[in-house]
Design a binder for these strands. Structure first.
Length: 426
RNA sequence: GUCCCCAUCGUCUAGCCUGGUCCAGGACAACAGAUUUUCGAUCUGUCGACCGCGGUUCAAAUCCGCGUGGGGACGCCA
């Protein structure tokens, strides 16, 4: 039975890199019908906080990375660490230095077999002895980690590359305890654009940030799974189930991967499209928290379902519809409103639209095209200025649908405002 | 400084183990064209990489060595 664990420290929010580690553990457990254990490494009591702890649990749940066991807390296991330290002391494998207990690292070369990297040989004569229990009575990281992994019968330790140089120390500890070490898989780190491991400098690194930016958990899972792993057949857009089915440690690669938000955004768009309209409406409602007519909202969502890539983009479009004021995009105004004929065309359009009883896309289009025919102009000469005048932007869904959804009053009012500004003369 | 890890398009990667099918495939981005209702949508296309040098071999992205470059670890932090 495969048993893996994710062991975060509640000394900060859940970082993209940590989440990727959690994800690979979870994927391996799921793909092997194994057990995914959550262990909170809170031995640094000065830096640990409940706020971070709660956020970590929430983020894992939001991502759908459910744990089967735990959370275990290291602060509740100090007796256990103490007793093992005592045992090593009695066996002469550790010694006291003041209040601290130190493990005497045997002078020998040690071979580690890593599932990702293959064999790694390290000369343990080069490293210092290892603190087991600190003077304040708390266990040191490498010790607590080994004891817990042993006690929790962890079979595979999947963690970041940066732990490779802990592994030889831990291996020496396993030897001293007379226990077979778990299998190790050190996965490459996630890098920022500067090729250094992801840090605050990069901007958004916490899962909460991505949630707020309107990314779907399944998109984030999909994207993160592709950093350091690939199914091998060029398939990239995958459901979580599909990833679980195809995941294998063998296909994890060794190179650090740069986090690329463009690709995440693309994948997010794909996952949004894949939602049914009902699902999409629900997701959007939860995200924007706006009070408006259900049927209207649904129509709006339908119009933008395939046009937006994040929920924030959805909200921005929605704001254009909801707000009283139009924010005019300078480039759009420059390109489509600053033209001699525009004012006249818009004035006439406004009159036509005002006369429509049933303000439907079909009727709006009919009237607009009729006007285009009478004026002997290109339809684009009416449509583009109309869009900019009403939405402030050069980009939107189909303009007739947009107008219909906006409603006659609002459209007329916005046209009036645009005409007052009199861009055509400036 | 010492030790360890890594090295294919701008980015994520396939191929590398088991050398020939690779003048290196896909995706994101970028760019161009199309769609005469735009576009950040859609479709089509273009650009673009095996870090260098030696070696092994009939044959090397693939194996070996050395360089170079990047990263990590050297805490009574985790």
């Amino acid at each position: 039975m495969v048993r893996v664990r994710f062991a975060p420290s509640p000394t900060g929010y859940l970082h993209i890199g940590s989440v990727r580690t959690a994800l690979f553990n979870w994927l391996y457990a799921r793909s092997q019908q194994g057990v995914f254990i959550l262990r909170i490494e809170d031995t640094d009591q000065k830096r640990s906080s409940d706020v971070y702890m709660k956020e970590i649990l929430e983020d894992l749940e939001w991502l759908g990375l459910k744990w089967d066991e735990g959370p275990y807390f290291q602060t509740k296991r100090f007796d256990l660490y103490r007793s093992y330290a005592q045992k090593l002391l009695e066996e002469g494998l550790a010694y006291k230095d003041g209040e601290a207990t130190i493990f005497k690292i045997p002078d020998e070369k040690i071979k580690i077999y890593d599932l990702v990297h293959g064999e790694i040989e390290v000369d343990n004569t080069l490293i210092d002895d290892l603190v087991l229990m600190k003077s304040d009575g708390s266990p040191a990281y490498n010790f607590a980690c080994v004891i817990d992994d042993m006690e929790m019968k962890v079979t595979h330790v999947i963690r970041g590359d940066d732990h490779i140089s802990n592994t030889n120390k831990q291996a020496a500890l396993y030897n001293a305890l007379g226990v077979k070490p778990p299998k190790f898989a050190h996965i490459p780190l996630i890098l920022g654009p500067d090729k250094a491991p992801l840090s605050k400098r990069f901007g958004a690194v916490s899962i909460t940030d991505y949630r707020k930016m309107g990314y779907l958990p399944q998109a984030l899972v999909n994207y993160l799974s592709l950093l350091g792993w690939a199914p091998g057949d060029n398939k990239e857009f995958m459901s979580v189930d599909e990833i679980v089915k195809r995941f294998s440690l063998k296909r994890i690669n060794k190179t650090g991967a740069e986090f690329n938000q463009d690709k995440l955004r693309w994948l997010n768009g794909e996952h949004i499209r894949k939602l049914s309209l009902d699902e999409f409406v629900k997701v959007c409602r939860d995200f924007v928290k706006i009070d408006c007519d259900e049927a209207w909202f649904r129509k709006f969502a339908e119009l933008y379902h395939h046009r937006i890539k994040t929920l924030v983009e959805f909200k921005e479009e929605l704001d254009i519809f909801m707000s009283e004021d139009v924010k005019y995009n300078e480039e759009a105004v420059e390109k489509f409103l600053k033209n001699d004929k525009v004012s006249d065309i818009l004035r006439m359009t406004q009159k036509r639209l005002e006369a429509i009883d049933l303000f439907t896309p079909e009727n709006i289009e009919k009237e607009s095209r009729a006007l285009v025919g009478e004026l002997k102009i290109e339809s684009s000469e009416l449509i583009h200025p109309l869009r900019v005048a009403v939405t402030g932007k050069a980009v939107s869904a189909g303009v007739f649908e947009v107008l219909a959804l906006l409603g006659k009053d609002k459209v007329i009012k916005r046209l009036e405002k645009a005409l007052e500004a009199d861009y055509g003369r400036k």
